[in-house]
Amino acid sequence: MSTPSLHVSGLTFSYPDGSRALDGIDLAVAPGERVALLGPNGAGKTTLVLQLNGVLRATSGEVEIGGLAVGSQTLREIRRRVGIVFQDPDDQLFMPTVAEDVAFGPANFGLRGPDLDARAHAALATVDMTDHADCSPMHLSYGQRRRVALATVLACDPEVLVLDEPSSNLDPVARRELADVLLRLERTMLMVTHDLPYALQLCPRSIVLDRGQVVADGPTRELLSDGDLLARHRLELPYGFTLAVD
């Protein structure tokens, strides 16, 4: 088997107040795989995501991205390899224009001149936002801002793309447009979400996290059709939905 894009072994993490947020996480994601990370509020999903690019550092255990261990020496390269799209695009988009924001990441990683322009342009084209390059993020719709936020991360050419609640606050069309863009990307993807139908549409595999532990890991359709499993971990399909394993 080739080197996994994401490899986590024995990861535990406690916050300074002593509360244990992650309790012995083991998981591996192969290159090109799309995985949904499910779980109730407070399960440790966001804490796990922040471990992946070294913003939070493990109490014990190890995280590897494309074979490179997260550590203080490798932080810069790790942050290039892990692209996180945060939940609120207003947190992510801070530059006066869309084009500058998309160029911010690759410029930090050393790209300059025509290479930088080409990279930013390609990222905007991927999310169909080229026409808005000179706009202020303030004047875009929420769905457009979410796609620009995705472009700002794609411009860094990450090995693993991490999305935090990508479908939240989107109207149905914007939600579908984002799904179209995400399905076109051939990248390793970890998607944190409460939107179970979205997980089913985009991610063949799902991981359920609860109280800092991996409690289920398998094909999304299989997990989502297990009513008992969902109920035990405060997950449920929206009203009127039922799933059958095919």
Binding site: L50, D88, D91, Q92, F94, A103, F104, G105, N108, C156
Partner: peptide
């Protein structure tokens, strides 16, 4: 949160002159 998102994209304290 903005600072966190900037760090995640490799911000080291100085804005690149674009």
């Amino acid at each position: 949160r903005v600072h966190l998102a900037m760090l995640a994209r490799g911000f080291t304290g100085a804005m690149p002159v674009l």
